[in-house]
Simulated scan of single mutants.
Amino acid sequence: MTTTATTTRATTSTVGALIRTGVIATVVASAATMAVAAAGHAAGISLDMGGASIPVSGFGTLTAVFSLIGVAIAALLSRFARRPRRAFVRTTVVLTALSLVPDVIADAGTATKALLMLTHLVAAAIVIPAVARRLAA
């Protein structure tokens, strides 16, 4: 009985640490993608896609939304996967690769497409390792 209570407490604190780390990584990644987009725009790269301009804040917002979805995936895998870290890294690398597809086919210039893809990779490079470190191997 005591072992069960200890195990439950350890699992709860592990999930709590995972979520805290994920939220912090999300904030950092959102700021980083906005900085990359702003730097690209300042360097003369258009943020226009399909005739509409993407606001720099939009990069941060979408990064936050999809990063938090990644944190939720990590929390689920920590509970249900036999090897949560491995499953998380594989899943998120595939999802990151798939996230580049819309950028490739977007109605935008080549430099804009490259900037969009760079922001995806920057976010992934920040969030995936930070969250993966909190998962059991």
Rank of each mutant, 00 (worst) to 15 (best):
L47P: 09
I45W: 03
F80I: 08
R90K: 01
P102Y: 07
R133V: 03
S78D: 13
A25Y: 00
A106M: 10
V65R: 03
G109L: 12
A38C: 11
A35W: 00
S13D: 11
A31T: 03
T11S: 14
A137G: 14
F88L: 02
L116K: 04
D103H: 12
M117N: 08
A10D: 15
A97K: 12
D107S: 08
R86P: 00
P55K: 04
L76F: 07
V131E: 00
A124N: 04
T12W: 11
M49E: 03
V127P: 01
A81D: 01
S99H: 08
S30M: 02
V36F: 01
L76T: 11
T26M: 01
V28E: 05
T7P: 06
A136P: 08
A81G: 08
A137I: 06
L18T: 13
M117P: 08
G40H: 02
A29T: 05
T14P: 08
T61K: 01
M34T: 09
A29F: 04
T61N: 05
S46F: 00
R9H: 09
A37M: 04
T3A: 15
T6E: 15
G58T: 08
T2V: 14
V27F: 00
R133K: 13
L76Q: 00
M34S: 10
G40D: 01
L116I: 06
A43V: 09
A43Y: 07
D48L: 03
F80A: 13
A29W: 03
V28R: 05
A74M: 06
R79C: 04
G109P: 05
T3H: 12
T12V: 15
G40R: 11
L77E: 06
A130T: 06
H120K: 13
T7Y: 02
A74W: 01
T21W: 09
M49D: 02
A64W: 03
R86D: 01
L95H: 08
P129Q: 02
T96P: 00
L47T: 14
T11N: 15
V104S: 08
V56H: 05
M34R: 05
L77H: 02
A124S: 12
D48K: 05
M117Y: 09
A124P: 05
R9L: 14
A125V: 04
R134D: 00
T3F: 08
